[in-house]
Design a protein around this nucleic acid. Structure first.
Lengths: 120, 120
DNA sequence: GTGATGTGCAAGTCGTGACTTGCACATCGA
DNA sequence: TCGATGTGCAAGTCACGACTTGCACATCAC
């Protein structure tokens, strides 16, 4: 099941190096810590530690192939976090819409109730 | 215009306190640094600094009302970042689909070329 | 077996980001 | 005008995360 925790994903993607790792994995179709380190300005060990964080966040999975360990992306964690963001945005948009409706209704009612006492 | 930079948004949301601030703003419909600090285990100054980061990331905007400064959410930054995530996920999914098709095609061709030598 | 390549583990350095404290300045109500 | 409330600025503490270095262990090709 490996539930995706939005917190972990956001904390993982908060680091620029890890974002590049994710993008590299998405573009090149997976790779090893060594191959990724070759495309980054950091050592293999740094990449290993980043991959551990990404794995912990459910953004990446690994499988052994002979003497190397190949990492691949796990898009579910990304889509789940994208949904969380969309939800927060929608919650806010919805609130704005409701406020707009209330304001509108209030204006209409004010006109119906006592149009002469207000503006005259 | 205030272009939204995904990097800034992800770095901003990487911090748990800032995530709570964003969620509080979305749920309660805006607030001041002081009111937010009342719902958090940190001081007002900490909230002020967090709001500065969120503002820099385009996640929040502020306007002065008398002696207080009211902060509101800016959903565009969230939706833009959600789209970036969906894009990365889609890029990976697309790659998987292509690989699956290639494998399928190769299998069909193998059967057409020499069906008896493979499964017998 | 031997060298080359790739990984795993441990410890240590170092910067920076989160948070606090303290005080000065502005605005509201009495 | 005075107290209460809210904000702004500055400096300082402190923990944690990013990264490196060093070495041991596993796997492949010859």
């Amino acid at each position: 099941m490996t539930a995706v925790h939005v917190e972990g994903v956001l904390e993982a993607l908060g680091d620029p190096t890890r974002r590049v790792v994710v993008e590299l994995l998405a573009a090149t179709g997976g790779g090893t810590a060594t191959s990724l380190a070759g495309q980054l300005p950091v050592t293999r060990q740094a990449v290993v530690q980043h991959l551990a964080v990404l794995r912990e966040a459910g953004l990446v999975e690994s499988r052994r192939e002979g003497r190397e360990v190949r990492f691949e992306l796990r898009p579910a964690a990304l889509t789940a976090t994208a949904e969380w963001m969309a939800d927060v945005a929608a919650q806010w948009d919805n609130r704005l819409r409701i406020i707009a409706e209330i304001a509108e209704t209030a204006q209409v009612e004010a006109q119906l109730d006592a149009p002469r006492t207000i503006d005259g």
